[in-house]
Design a binder for these strands. Structure first.
Length: 252
DNA sequence: GTGGGATGGGCAA
DNA sequence: TGCCCCTCCCACA
């Protein structure tokens, strides 16, 4: 479930299990074995999430950068790690608990400048309390790109993925095809606030719920089904290389 | 049992 | 734009 909320939640839970401790680090799968050996025994200073990126700061000054991509998955728990399930790229063990990572798009050691260059190319993150949306609004306000593509662009806003894109636009009543510069500033502000609220809820619960606990989504993955508000069939199309869903009755 | 698609993104062309 | 990465899960048999 890797959108921004998953990554921030992972950072919070893993801090409790690992931060401040010297870690045993290995790579049961073997693909990260050399790097794991460099980290093994070091104290983990902090874990920080920016959009969909995670940075683990180690005492020697290096960072482990993780991006889950579409397939990546963390497992974690208190006590001793169980036998690895599937292909585990990297495993951490502290005196309090363990974390395993499988299937990531990125799992690499970076120095401070490598970390900075990643942070320089992502936009404000609604889950970071001090981030402000002005930069994102400026990009959107002068762009002819559809708002549905801009919301997926991590250099515009960091942390929103395909589910939140569809749900945010439905809740705002905006069709995905509307050019960025045609979206009123008041609507952008409302989108930002709603993104912050929905992502925070997702961070707390670990699930994306934008409608009701049982019927979780308004439009995402509901092609052909009746709109929960107006009963018009939900439609879908490809935008920014992913399927976008919307209600032609509610979104203009 | 199994095949396709999935909540991403980098890269070549 | 399409391919690849390379894992999990669910719809369908």
């Amino acid at each position: 479930m890797p959108e921004g909320h998953t990554v921030h939640r992972a950072a919070r839970l893993q801090r409790e299990l690992l931060a401040g401790s010297a870690l045993a680090v290995d790579s049961p799968q073997g693909r990260f074995a050399e790097e794991a050996a460099l980290l093994d025994g070091q104290r983990l200073e902090s874990i920080e999430a920016y959009g969909k990126h995670l940075f683990y700061a180690f005492e020697s000054g290096v960072y482990l950068h993780v991006h889950l991509g579409l397939f990546g998955k963390f497992r974690m728990g208190a006590g001793r790690a169980p036998e690895p399930r599937g292909a585990v790229r990297v495993r951490f063990q502290s005196e309090r608990g363990w974390v395993t990572l499988s299937g990531p798009t990125a799992c690499e050691i970076l120095d401070a400048s490598g970390r900075r260059s990643i942070l320089a190319r992502i936009g404000p993150d609604p889950l970071r309390p001090t981030d402000r949306p002005a930069r994102a609004f400026a990009r959107i306000a002068k762009s002819s790109t559809p708002i549905g593509a801009l919301l997926m662009d991590q250099s515009v806003i960091a942390g929103i993925g395909n589910v939140y894109r569809a749900e945010l636009l439905f809740r705002a009543g905006i069709a995905p095809q509307v050019p960025g510069r045609a979206v009123p500033r008041t609507a952008l502000l409302e989108l930002w606030r709603d993104a912050r609220a929905l992502l925070r809820a997702g961070e707390r619960t670990g699930r994306i719920v934008t409608f009701r606990p049982r019927e979780r989504h308004y439009v995402y993955n509901r092609t052909g089904k009746p709109c929960r508000t107006c009963a018009t069939p939900i439609v879908s199309a490809t935008m920014a290389a992913r399927t976008v869903y919307w209600c032609p009755g509610c979104q203009h």
